[in-house]
């Protein structure tokens, strides 16, 4: 029966695992922001980045993993991040639509008017 219960599934996960997930989402989001040319694609990357940060906050706040955790502060930080992300998305989307209306494109590489 050993093969049914490998160590990786019987050991409780620790804080590190959650941080790794957060880091992965963060990096994916960052790469997404760097490589996408579509304005909305970049926005999606930002969402992922913020989400990765959020997972870290919540993981550090959880009493499951550490005795002296962040407590309420972590949860509230995460909440504020979520709310501000929603606000940011709304404004950025409005800007993107405006940009699309004025220039008939959503390619960020074409937005170079201020380049001089």
């Amino acid at each position: 029966m050993e093969w049914l219960t490998p160590d990786i599934l019987t050991e409780p996960v620790g804080l590190s695992h959650f941080l790794a997930v957060g880091a992965f989402l963060f990096v994916t989001g960052a790469v997404c922001m760097a490589t996408k040319r579509n304005t909305l694609g970049i926005l999606m990357g930002i969402e992922l980045v913020l989400n990765g940060a959020n997972i870290n906050f919540v993981a550090f706040a959880s009493p499951y993993f550490r005795e002296d955790n962040l407590g309420l502060d972590g949860h509230l930080m995460a909440l504020f991040v979520i709310v501000l992300a929603a606000a940011e998305a709304a404004v950025a989307l409005a800007i993107a639509l405006n940009y699309y209306n004025n220039y008939a494109t959503i390619d960020v590489d074409k937005a170079n008017e201020l380049k001089g």
Binding site: P12, V13, S16, A23, Y64
Partner: peptide
């Protein structure tokens, strides 16, 4: 780098 940092603390591996 980030994963290295996350797994560098022994106490965080498990609970």
């Amino acid at each position: 780098l980030l994963t290295q940092a996350a797994f560098s603390v022994e106490a965080w591996h498990s609970t």
